[in-house]
């Protein structure tokens, strides 16, 4: 870690004499009084934002200049236009087109994503609680197994799973249900792993007190684990949301025309010979909007931190 730590300049920061009453505001100053820290933060923020801004600018390049000109060239001669956004949103391929606007796929994306977030988070939390707090034979082995399963490449599991979901068995392939199940399975190892880390740090006394009172596992799960885990659940939910939202492979394999999410038309937008490649940047930009809204709205749940247990002093 030390290698990658940015050089945070030691802050002089003469301790106020009445240090014990140091307020949060004062602390904020502590953190940002270092001009180096501020500069580093600004640089990181800029470096991380510029590529996205570039994507936005590129989506404003008119189609006939997309392959030959850079956005700043087009900007310089005032050629930037919102036409591509219009085209992508309201008539994908121009006036003669019958293609549905991306809007239709936005709904599919939502329908695919939300249950695919809820299922693995709930099931993962249940298992995480069991592995962290209920001693049973094989607990460690099973947990390590689940943990290691994270690395199984998704592609290897596609065919066996499709056989199970296919018409000869569950008959869910091509339906939303099939896509949900597939996403849920692929998300479970990480979900169990992350939530286990959180749940296992809940102070023992909290759980023991309840246990002494005669609470069953079910009662502990609903009364203690769920309320205390909300911050972790919120973080995991956001990430799972993003991964599913941006997934193409699982949706393509387990879904059908009725269920394809936004990534599907975007990946096909360029056309057989790439003649519509200029529509890809605006579409990619549009597909970011909902995940960002989700991030903003769930951000406040992060306050408590992913690891409540780390606070025990």
């Amino acid at each position: 870690m030390s290698v990658t730590m940015p050089p945070q300049h030691p802050v002089e920061d003469p301790k106020p004499t009445e240090g014990k009453s140091l307020t949060k505001a004062a602390k904020a100053k502590n953190n940002l009084t270092s001009p180096w820290a501020t500069a580093a933060a600004i640089i990181i923020a800029m470096v991380w934002t510029i590529p996205t801004v570039a994507l936005f600018m590129t989506s404003l390049i008119p189609g006939d200049r997309y392959r030959t000109d850079a956005w700043w060239t087009v900007l310089a001669d005032g050629g930037l236009t919102f036409d591509n956004f219009n085209q992508v949103l309201f008539d994908s391929f121009g006036d003669n087109s019958t293609a549905p606007p991306l809007l239709e796929y936005v709904f599919n994306s939502i329908v695919v994503t939300v249950p695919s977030v809820v299922f693995p988070v709930v099931l993962g939390l249940m298992a995480a609680y069991a592995f962290a707090w209920i001693p049973f034979r094989g607990s460690n082995f099973l947990f390590v197994l689940i943990f290691a399963l994270q690395v199984v490449p998704l592609q290897l599991a596609l065919i066996p799973l499709l056989r199970l979901l296919g018409p000869e068995n569950l008959g869910l392939a091509g339906e939303f249900g099939g896509v949900w199940i597939a996403h849920t399975i692929f998300a479970l190892p990480l979900s169990v792993f992350l939530l286990h880390n959180f749940v296992s740090h809940i102070p023992r006394e909290v759980l023991e007190a309840a246990r002494v009172d005669g609470a069953s596992h079910t009662q502990m799960f609903f009364r203690i684990i769920i309320p205390l885990s909300l911050p972790a659940v919120a973080s995991l939910a956001i990430f799972q949301f993003l991964w599913v939202w941006n997934d193409l492979l699982v949706s393509a394999v387990f879904g059908s025309a009725n269920t394809y999410p936004l990534t599907y038309p975007i990946s096909n937008l360029a056309g057989d010979y790439g003649q519509y490649a200029y529509l890809v940047p605006p579409a990619a930009f549009i597909s970011m909007i909902i995940p960002l809204i989700v991030f903003f709205s769930l951000q406040r749940y992060f306050v408590r931190g992913l690891l409540a247990g780390s606070t025990k002093g």
Partner: peptide, 15 residues
């Protein structure tokens, strides 16, 4: 400031 650095997570791979 957080969302600025978080933004790339929301971009699809195609993007």
């Amino acid at each position: 400031l957080k969302s600025l650095v978080f933004m790339p997570m929301a971009i699809s791979l195609v993007g």
